[in-house]
Structures are given as structure tokens and as C-alpha cells.
């Protein structure tokens, strides 16, 4: 057989006649519509929940970040803090606004020392490599610095810590020496097994060339010495010899004394 067009058409038409039930089609289409609608509602609900949770997370993150800046004592005016804790939460203490907050141009003498040394929680527990840890301790060139001296626990005898103001080259030298200190934590073996019980905490408040007080830099002179403004960290700082003379409050406590706690006193 060699089919011609007529035969082909006839063969194709053979057997037709069954009808299609439109109700079945409509029922199936409605089922598909319903399933599609349910799927959209389900995905929409999930998307809404994700959006809400994400929004809460973002708002919470921003709030925490703002709180974190305030807690770490930003140049805009931190109002809390005590002594330095490695990763521990700060204990809020009173810090006079005018001691560190920016304001009209002032000299170092006009800056008041806080009654207690600010407590700055070190980023990442004070470990190396934290974001901003290698930055300068001061937000810019300093024209003057006020150095407030506290006991090791950050308190001041009589409520008012002794302080010294440095200006000009002395201030710059102090700031430079702080910034030049080591940015990595020294090995524990670098410190004597027992350090002197007498320690000092310094709060160094830089005054910019515009007369604005900068974030306070808290310096502990125990081994390893630690200096931080809440973000940047330096280790093992000792004051330059020339400046040590101008900082009589530091006394001989800039390093280990060699005296061992509990040992007989050698005279």
C-alpha cells in the first residue's frame, strides 16, 4: 500500500467520536487553581515570617551596634564603664560628660578626670587580629593629653585621681609611644610568674588640634601592659623615659618590681 493523502486523512479520522466531559476539565482546573493558591499562601506566609524575622534581626543588630558604640566610649560621649576586662561585660560607672565628650575648644586642664577609670570591654576578648585592633588609639593628632592616674582596680583615692597635662611635643610623644607599642599579645612567658601587686591604671584623654576631647585610652600597667580605647589595642607599653619624669605619679610601677608577693622583704 502506498497511502495517498485521502487515505491518510481517512485513516486518521477513523475511530473518532468520543466526547470530552467539560465538567471533568473544569473540576481538574479548579483543583489546580486551589493547589496553586494554597501554595502561594504557604510560600507567602513563609516569606512574610522570614521578612519579619529578618527585619527584627536587622533592627536588633543596629540597636546593639549603637549600644556597643556607646558602651565602648566613642568620641561622641560614652557614659558608662570601669576597669578593663577581657571580654567581660563592663560595669557601668559614672563618667563625667565633660571629661571626654566633644564640645567647645578646650585645653587639657579643662578636661576633668573621671572618678573611676572607664571599663572597656575588649573586642574579641582582647585577642589579636580583631577588626580595628591595629588602628591608632587616638582619632587624630593630639595637641594635648590629660593623664589621669588610678590604682590597679580603677579607683581613685579620695575620689579625685591625680592627673598631669602634657602639651605640644610631649603630648605627641606620649601618643606616639602608645601607638607604637606592640599590637600583638606577648607570650605569657614574657611576664614574671608573679608580678608586683601594686599596679596603676592610666586614663589618657587626648585633645585634638580642634580642641575636642577624644575617646579615652585606658592603660593598665600590669604585665602585659594593655592600652585600649575600646577598639584599638596595644600591649607592653612603657612611657618614654623623658616623659616618665613628668609623670611622677607613675613612680616605679611601669614594670615588674621584682618583689614577689608573700616573700620576705629585702631591704
Amino acid at each position: 500500500m502506498s497511502p495517498n493523502e485521502f487515505q491518510l486523512r481517512a485513516a486518521l479520522r477513523d475511530g473518532e467520536g468520543d466526547r470530552v466531559d467539560p465538567d471533568l476539565v473544569i473540576a481538574q482546573a479548579r483543583g489546580m487553581q486551589q493547589a496553586r493558591h494554597d501554595r502561594r499562601v504557604r510560600y507567602g506566609s513563609v516569606a512574610a515570617v522570614v521578612a519579619v524575622v529578618g527585619g527584627i534581626g536587622v533592627i536588633g543588630g543596629i540597636t546593639l551596634q549603637d549600644g556597643g558604640h556607646a558602651k565602648s566610649g566613642s568620641a561622641a560621649g560614652a557614659k558608662r564603664p570601669a576597669s578593663i576586662h577581657n571580654g567581660a561585660k563592663s560595669v557601668p560607672t559614672e563618667l563625667p560628660d565633660e571629661s571626654i565628650a566633644p564640645g567647645p575648644k578646650r585645653d587639657a586642664r579643662a578636661v576633668r578626670c573621671p572618678s573611676t577609670a572607664p571599663s572597656l570591654a575588649l573586642p574579641g576578648g582582647g585577642g589579636s587580629g580583631q577588626f580595628g585592633a591595629h588602628e591608632s588609639l587616638f582619632s587624630g593628632p593630639v595637641e594635648a593629653v590629660k593623664v589621669c592616674v588610678y590604682s590597679g582596680d580603677g579607683s581613685a583615692t579620695g575620689g579625685t585621681p591625680p592627673s598631669t597635662e602634657l602639651t605640644g611635643q610631649n603630648a605627641t610623644e606620649l601618643a606616639t609611644s602608645l601607638d607604637s607599642a606592640a599590637t600583638t599579645r606577648p607570650q605569657s612567658s614574657d611576664c614574671p610568674s608573679q608580678t608586683a601587686p601594686e599596679t596603676r591604671t592610666l586614663v589618657v584623654i587626648g585633645i585634638s588640634t580642634a580642641g575636642q576631647a577624644m575617646r579615652p585610652v585606658v592603660v593598665t600597667l600590669t604585665c602585659p601592659g594593655l592600652a585600649t580605647n575600646g577598639t584599638a589595642i596595644r600591649y607592653g607599653w612603657t612611657p618614654p623615659a623623658r616623659l616618665a619624669e613628668q609623670l611622677p605619679q607613675l613612680g616605679a610601677n611601669t614594670g615588674p618590681t621584682g618583689k614577689v608577693s608573700g616573700s620576705p622583704i629585702r631591704s
Binding site: 486518521l12 479520522r13 475511530g15 473518532e16 467520536g17 468520543d18 466526547r19 470530552v20 467539560p22 476539565v25 473544569i26
Partner: peptide, 23 residues
């Protein structure tokens, strides 16, 4: 327009079904 769809299926459903079987 369900009525229009029903009319369409009744008019063309047979042809479409047979075409589907041929395919």
C-alpha cells in the same frame, strides 16, 4: 465564562481528543 468554555469543549472536544490519541 464557564458557559462559553463548555460550549467550546462540546464543539471541539471530540476532535481534540482524537488528535491527542493520534499523537
Amino acid at each position: 465564562d464557564e458557559a462559553g468554555f463548555r460550549t467550546f469543549v462540546e464543539a471541539n472536544g471530540t476532535t481534540l481528543l482524537h488528535a491527542a490519541r493520534l499523537l
